[in-house]
């Protein structure tokens, strides 16, 4: 909407930013990663969902504080979709926290090929005036 500050996740600018998602992004700007918890059945989601997948009750955002993770899987993207062509090559990684929760993001400070099982640490980055992201560091 005009007048409102634009904010997007990651490296693209998908316009589908709802109030719930915007709350997530504004927390991310403060280097807080939010999960969501169902107000009724207490199911937890990372990344967060507005509505519980099980009972369709609304969820609330609460902070997710784990930072250390292990690499479940990765790919080095050498031929990117058009929207990320300027960033190629980049490393996409699925990391798993000790709680079993997972997150998909880029690893941004690798010098060698990643190895499944290696340690990762979650970090944050302001990509541009309008973009903010979480990312993995080795």
């Amino acid at each position: 909407m005009s007048g409102e500050k634009e904010i997007y996740l990651g490296y693209t600018t998908d316009k589908a930013v709802t109030p719930f998602f915007k709350q997530f992004l504004e927390a991310l700007e403060k280097q807080q990663l939010m999960k969501s918890t169902c107000k009724k059945c207490k199911s937890e989601y990372l990344p967060p969902r507005q509505y519980c997948q099980k009972c369709l009750t609304e969820c609330e955002l609460t902070e997710f504080t784990e930072r250390d993770a292990k690499l479940v899987s990765f790919t080095v993207v050498e031929f990117a979709p058009e929207s990320l062509a300027s960033r190629q090559p980049y490393v996409v990684a699925i990391g798993e926290f000790p709680s079993g929760r997972r997150l998909t993001a880029h690893i941004t400070n690798l010098m060698d090929m990643p190895k499944v099982g290696m340690k990762l640490k979650l970090s944050f980055e302001r990509v541009s005036d309008k973009q903010v992201t979480y990312k993995w560091q080795v």
């Binding site: 490296y11 693209t12 979709p81 998909t104």
Partner: peptide, 10 residues
Amino acid sequence: MRWEYPYGIS
């Protein structure tokens, strides 16, 4: 589109 697309997962 919300969680995977912004990371260029082709």
